[in-house]
Write a protein that binds this DNA or RNA. Sequence first.
DNA 1: GAGCGCCTGAGAACCATTGTCAACTCTGGT
DNA 2: ACCAGAGTTGACAATGGTTCTCAGGCGCTC
Lengths: 129, 129
Amino acid sequence: MVRPTRQRAAVAAVFDELEGFHSAQEVHARLRTAGDTVGLSTVYRAVQALADDGELDSIRTDSGEALYRRCSTQHHHHLVCRSCGRTVEVAGPTVEQWADRVAGEHGFADVSHTLEIFGTCADCRVPTP
Amino acid sequence: MVRPTRQRAAVAAVFDELEGFHSAQEVHARLRTAGDTVGLSTVYRAVQALADDGELDSIRTDSGEALYRRCSTQHHHHLVCRSCGRTVEVAGPTVEQWADRVAGEHGFADVSHTLEIFGTCADCRVPTP
DNA sequence: GAGCGCCTGAGAACCATTGTCAACTCTGGT
DNA sequence: ACCAGAGTTGACAATGGTTCTCAGGCGCTC
């Protein structure tokens, strides 16, 4: 049984306030400085629980750190700027279908997939003369 | 100055022999069992150097482990069995184009992407009666 | 062959993440 | 309200991939 607790609410609240991706460590630090003492383990657990429930979306940085963010329930992918980290959510029915079809053709069932697109966004691109 | 050494050649050779993605740890273990003693640190350095040179491509697993593979001239993705780990290489021109187009629409340049498909292969699926 | 640097490698350090476990706190039944 | 039981918490230890350190090794050039 999942029980609503102060700590869980606190973690969820952080993602309501913040835009974009944030690490568990960051959430923990933020709660600490806000005077809201929540154990680090608890933050990790809460964040993972939220991710399991589909309330948070997670990606990995190049350094292997896990980042989470409040996301829409519908399945989508991310377009991430290599320079400033800005992310755009993109939906791609085409890709979903393609992935399912290809997997099916090879006899794979219960299919899921991960897709991240990286690039340099317009703001970060240096206007080379 | 970059100097060609036995160790670096050994690491590069591993990726010539192997298909798909492999971790630095795995490369190290493989060299060890092959009687080719190369320090773990050196494997990490070699792998990163190769990645910097664009000879290897890297991704992160869900657990945060870094995987590398030889950049084949031909771009493709992987269909991985969750149970036995069997992988199938799949090419998807559709996806490539879609990714480029979507990125372009959002003003992103210099686009790359990672895509992995997970599922349960026919052999591992339990024939539920 | 000699000297200069880059390179190597064993181990320690690092750090995000996960595991442990006793104490705690909801929740439902009485 | 009270109690019992089960989910939760949090300080701390442990884990594991990756990086750092530094003394010694080795390739290159002269």
